[in-house]
């Protein structure tokens, strides 16, 4: 991956998602500028994962526009979204547990638009996540949670995405491991990959990201910047306020 910032942004406008009669996301508009790292925080059931799923084409959007750079990707099937340049690291990681780490990584390259630079990308993710190299022959399901998370992010990066969607990367991980994941994120940002991150640990996210959106009951409630990281009162109010 070149260090040149030919980064591509992601824009969501007026997104609405419903499961049957229940509207889970309503009139959601958010913007991730090229190369930015933006977080989406909120309580359980706020609609964060659903938002990522809708961007990825995993759940149909009832209304709204989704743009990758200046290309509309609303209504695309997931495989087409992936090939357009968005990669998702889902909550719970979803490695293929019976396959080896190597095979999982190989599947990560399916969505690449070109095989140019694959070797460099591979070297880069191995540097970023040594576990990927050390355990390449092991069954993915046998790895620890932290190692699995590393493989999952590495797999996503090997698609050389313009935009990386990360769902709860710190969930269930030891503090030390969380730290290493965020260190990796710093590197990923430096490479010019645009990141939209869903995170339960709001303090962590707000301090780290360029901007943090707070979601509640399917709507965006608040936009915070790193300087708000200490303002717990505002965060709590946005989480639980009406």
């Amino acid at each position: 991956m070149s260090e040149v910032a030919t980064a591509v942004g992601l824009a969501v406008e007026g997104l609405e998602v419903a499961y049957g009669p229940v509207t889970v996301v309503r009139d959601l508009t958010l913007n991730v500028e090229p190369g930015e790292v933006v977080a989406l925080v909120g309580a359980n059931g706020a609609g964060k994962t659903t938002t990522l799923s809708a961007i990825m084409g995993l759940v149909p959007a009832k209304a709204g526009a989704i743009r990758l750079g200046d290309r509309s990707i609303a209504g695309f099937r997931p495989e087409r979204v992936a090939r357009a340049g968005i990669a998702l690291v889902p909550e719970g990681r979803h490695l293929f547990p019976a396959m080896t780490v190597e095979e999982n990584l190989k599947l990560g390259t399916i969505g690449r638009r070109s095989d140019d630079g694959l070797a460099e990308d591979r070297a880069w993710v191995e540097e970023l996540f040594p576990a990927v190299r050390d355990f390449s022959g092991r069954r993915a399901g046998d790895l620890s949670g932290g190692q699995q998370q590393q493989v999952a992010i590495a797999r996503a990066l090997l698609a050389r995405p313009d935009v990386l969607l990360l769902d709860e990367p710190s969930l269930g991980l030891a503090p030390k491991t969380v730290e290493s994941v965020f260190e990796a994120l710093t590197e990923i940002r430096r490479r010019g990959v645009t990141v939209l991150l869903v995170e339960q640990r709001a303090q962590l996210a707000i301090g780290f990201c360029d901007r943090t959106y707070v979601m509640a009951a399917g709507e965006l409630r608040l936009t915070l910047t790193p300087k708000d990281a200490g303002d717990s009162a505002r965060i709590v109010a946005a989480y639980f306020g009406s």
Binding site: M56, P78, A82, L88, F96, M99, L107
Partner: peptide, 24 residues
């Protein structure tokens, strides 16, 4: 084979496979 790998991935978890660009 690549398509074989994709078939195994789809058999294991087709949703995740699709998000990686595997054409269902």
């Amino acid at each position: 084979s690549t398509i074989g790998l994709q078939m195994r991935a789809a058999a294991s978890d087709i949703r995740t496979a699709r998000t990686l660009g595997v054409r269902a």
